[in-house]
Amino acid sequence: MASSLSPSLALHLAQIILGLHLVVIAFNVFGLVLIPLGAWRGWAWVRLPGWRVAHLAALSLVAIQAVWGRACFLTVWQSDLMAAAGRRGYTAPLIQTWVDRLMFWNLPMAFFTALYVLVWLYVLALWHWVPPRRNKPAPR
């Protein structure tokens, strides 16, 4: 499908997917920090079930894709669109590409798979340490 798009539209869509990917990454990373911080500070919203399920689901998807040896589907879509726009796409997962570029380390995918699985286990532990709960209705 990406090959049937004009190069400018493909590039625009690739940039939109990159923005969406950054939002998902920020949601995942900030959740790892804000859930325990919010529990300590007494912030009720960190225990909202819908938010916690979305966080667990997003990180579960990341871990499952890594265990299966697959790049994130957002990375694949962006890479395909970049190629359709005549640009060089990613040959590795987005985070691995960034780490490679920032630190100049050529780390194997197994490192990132282990990292994603450890993060997923941490999120599961957060369900035990900071269990989600519904807000109690205000008394009448």
Rank of each mutant, 00 (worst) to 15 (best):
L5A: 06
L9Y: 03
L11R: 10
H12P: 00
H12T: 11
H12I: 00
L13E: 04
Q15H: 10
L18C: 05
I25L: 15
F27K: 08
F27H: 13
V29Y: 11
V29E: 08
P36F: 05
G38H: 05
G38T: 09
W40D: 00
G42E: 08
G42P: 11
W45N: 05
R47L: 04
W51S: 04
W51I: 09
R52H: 08
V53P: 03
V53S: 07
H55A: 14
L56C: 09
A57Q: 07
A58Q: 08
L59E: 12
S60I: 05
L61W: 14
L61Y: 14
L61K: 10
V62Q: 06
V62E: 05
A63F: 06
I64E: 01
V67N: 04
V67Y: 08
G69A: 07
F73W: 13
L74I: 10
L74Q: 04
T75N: 03
Q78S: 07
A83F: 00
A83S: 11
A85Y: 01
A85Q: 03
G86P: 10
G86M: 04
R87M: 07
R87L: 10
A92N: 09
P93Y: 05
P93R: 03
V99G: 00
D100C: 05
D100H: 12
M103A: 15
F104H: 12
F104N: 08
W105E: 13
N106R: 14
L107A: 15
A110M: 09
T113E: 00
A114D: 02
A114V: 14
L118P: 01
V119H: 06
L121G: 09
V123M: 07
V123R: 00
L124S: 06
A125S: 07
W127N: 09
V130P: 03
P131M: 02
P132S: 01
R133D: 00
R133S: 10
N135E: 14
A138E: 15
